[in-house]
Design a protein around this nucleic acid. Sequence first.
DNA 1: GTGAAAGCGCTAACAT
DNA 2: ATGTTAGCGCTTTCAC
Lengths: 336, 336
Amino acid sequence: MPGKFQGVTIEDVARHAGVSTATVSRFLNHSDKIAPLTAARIQHAVSELGYQPGMAARVLAGGKTHALGLVVDEIKGEFFNPMLRGISAAAGEAGYELLINATAPGRRPAGFPLGEKNTDGLIVFTDSLPDKELRRMHQAGFPCVLLHRSAPAGLAMPCVTVENKRGARDMVDYLIEQRGYRRIAFLRGAEGHEDSSWRERGYREALESHGLPYDEKLIGNGFFDEQQARETVTGWIRRGLKMEVIFAADDDSAIGAMLAVKEAGLRVPQDIAIVGFDDIRLARYLSPPLTTVRAPIEKAARLAVEQLVRLIETGSADPLTLLPTELIIRESCGFA
Amino acid sequence: MPGKFQGVTIEDVARHAGVSTATVSRFLNHSDKIAPLTAARIQHAVSELGYQPGMAARVLAGGKTHALGLVVDEIKGEFFNPMLRGISAAAGEAGYELLINATAPGRRPAGFPLGEKNTDGLIVFTDSLPDKELRRMHQAGFPCVLLHRSAPAGLAMPCVTVENKRGARDMVDYLIEQRGYRRIAFLRGAEGHEDSSWRERGYREALESHGLPYDEKLIGNGFFDEQQARETVTGWIRRGLKMEVIFAADDDSAIGAMLAVKEAGLRVPQDIAIVGFDDIRLARYLSPPLTTVRAPIEKAARLAVEQLVRLIETGSADPLTLLPTELIIRESCGFA
DNA sequence: GTGAAAGCGCTAACAT
DNA sequence: ATGTTAGCGCTTTCAC
């Protein structure tokens, strides 16, 4: 016997205030001018009865859900917290509810749980949705904004992300120019993850521009994951791979790398230096504190929501929002 | 020109399959027996047309929203991540959407954004909702489950939380019995936060049972916040307060305490030992690694959802779910 | 086993 | 400035 909690309806209010439901609706939505006197009466009735408009009927009649959807693959990593905070806050400020879905790419029961049927627009985080679905939505004119990924070829979908390539390049430039490192290993992020490939590109560019060779052996997989990164680096060390510094594609994998180095009885940064990307909260507490590239995660999240709301309400948004990163120098990259 | 994305409706499917909408509905909801042949035809039509039931109409007609609401005060602290992961996963598994609202206690525009109008039930985290609202909902028969707080007096509302008192007591017992500490300071959590008061109670009980005096001066405010805890401890040290170990009501404030101690030029744990509560991810990475009480946050979150779903679907749930904690001994409490 | 029809609570023309 | 009315897309009696 569940359901049916919507006790007081707009009709109750109308009756109580001696007006029609239409007038109440207008009052509620500020959609039309109303005599101050009736407005007052309605207002009174509303609070008297404790009336709250039912979402469902409102949506059904009006065609708007007043909700934004957030699609993510997995709630994991320190990255997530500031991102959600930004999205949640911005959505609230814009007057939208927030629906979030974290269905892992595994179970996908014919049709995604979030979409035009229950939201006015979607924030799509990285590759939580297949290109095919993205295309379908875009073609249907359904508002979507991509966060930390770019649009599939040919799709004019607004993107919000950080300057990954530039950030990585700055970091590696610094490592080479200021610290004099030459053998710089790189720990890739998750397979097919865009942030990671841009960062890798920045890494390569920096090497090239300094005339340093690109060495396949110095590239490994960290998968944006502490454990995986740890295993990779342990493998490197066991095999006797020589490197001066490890540039991990994100802080989580940097942590794994640090663990691996320490477990091997080596010192950070004296034997092997380590740097990361993101500047998660943990970074400054590690020992040694982690040198990293700060990515404005919360800000990016807020901007994504702002773009989405613009897209919903005006039909247009900026194609690309790119946020600058910042080099955060701590001790894990060696002492100056 | 927003709204109206629900292109294909149940009528389209019905027509396409040569049946009535009623039959399609029955098929979709498994609410009645259907001839295998028609079933097949409908199924075909559905996938042919890519039909997805519209939430709004379904809700309006059926009285169920198929959504769970999560009310939190603020998305902050490491605590949040595992909690959300648990809730999100469990909700998905039970076939519910998840709506989350993080409106800070400040702006509260007459009526809370989440409630019977848009969800089938609510998970209420700590004191994100005033007792009055809780009462109203409970009295209206609206399913709510409390997470990490207990019900207001007289309200039979299911609660899910961890054994805070017991965990704290175990910790302090350990500190006294195994480490021989006698001057144990306590850093309270947020004002009125239940977890905190239970932990404080555990702390006091442990002192009493060992015949140790309760000293007001050794109690300070950490507010579950790194900065605030840091300031409090800095104040203590400045004023020359003597203590052997600080028991912080959560790991975040333990971090603040650790910072303060180090800033004062003292060593952890040689000069002042520090222990926390929660075992957030960061804990083991601190230097020294933090001794703490592990709280099964994600598990608690899952159980809360399970209780809520039971409450929604069967009308009953366990009044109280109490999860055991576990002592995690690391180096910040002194070496054995 | 299936269809017809009556709403669910609200908004948005269209009148007045 | 306000009332009337026709749906929005779906579920659910009630007949057949």
